[in-house]
Design a protein around this nucleic acid. Structure first.
Lengths: 152, 152
DNA sequence: AATTCTGTTGCTAATGATTCTCATTATACG
DNA sequence: CGTATAATGAGAATCATTAGCAACAGAATT
């Protein structure tokens, strides 16, 4: 049994719930996707693999995965909520280019001490840290510079 | 003319659009709200002040305010998008309690050097930083502790 | 083995948030 | 003024998400 499966199972058991076949399938697909996804995308991927799992079940499973800490909300963009799996995927910063839409990730590690310090000051029991930075990626910002020169 | 009005006007002019009366009213209300809001809440506040502005116009104005950099997405929570005005409001961290739903803010200043360092390394031209931390506020985490003791 | 209980599921209807359409009105500019 | 373009209100339409319900599955109890 895979790590994440075991963890989900434990989580469910603690709540008196079971790791059923549909839930197992959804979990598999979630961990096979290495990008951000929304419910609909997840659903159509699942349809490719197994049939007989309804969209409703996908929607019902996502909050469980969130609560189990296996999945988290991803950078918010327009058009519904997006998610990403996080188990074994260390916390990271999202760098979101507002021009070309690409998302880069980088490590959050060296920011953690400063964050934890503030958490302590606020007596806040932090479970999840999400840092998103919007701006221009190097490609788009160098393009912008070129244009500036051309325009003037 | 207020700072933010001027800024919005400039932004609109650059796009060949106009700062009309409804837009001005919406802007006023946005900057009178000092909490997070969603489109519906904004709309009902506006109804209290002026009449004859439709929900559709509110929805149409929000993306303009986002693009103008006067408003940003706030912590994502379930149930639609929420916003907050940012002009003259220094960047801050959101501490979101997953139990009672309260949102505290704290200063982002002392994290900025570390963030800027990474930005430089990635050649990323950062415009907007958004740091949200989910967990238990001090009240809820102390309650949780009490219950643990009571239960057992 | 039959019964009961509780959680699970697929289907579909319902809701809520957001966007679109369109006829009408306002505004800037020649 | 008159024309062109943008802006608006109202309501319809769409999209994402949730809820309701009848049928089903598995474990525990009889």
């Amino acid at each position: 049994m895979k790590d994440y499966e075991e963890r989900f199972d434990e989580f469910l058991a603690k709540k008196g719930l079971k790791l059923t076949a549909p839930r197992k399938h959804i979990l598999e697909v979630v961990f096979a996707i290495h990008e951000h996804f929304n419910a609909e995308e997840l659903y159509s991927r699942i349809k490719g693999v197994t049939k007989g799992i309804s969209l409703a079940t996908v929607y019902r499973t996502i909050p469980l995965l969130l609560e189990a800490g296996l999945v988290q909300h991803a950078v918010l963009s327009s058009g519904g909520q997006r998610f990403e799996h996080i188990y074994g995927h260390p916390k990271h910063i999202h760098w979101l280019c507002s021009k070309c839409g690409t998302i880069q990730e980088s490590d959050l590690k060296n920011l953690m001490p400063a964050i934890e310090e503030q958490a302590k000051a606020l007596c806040f029991n932090a479970e999840d840290v999400q840092l998103s930075i919007k701006g221009l990626c190097w490609k788009c910002s160098s393009l912008a510079n070129e244009n500036q020169i051309d325009d003037k």
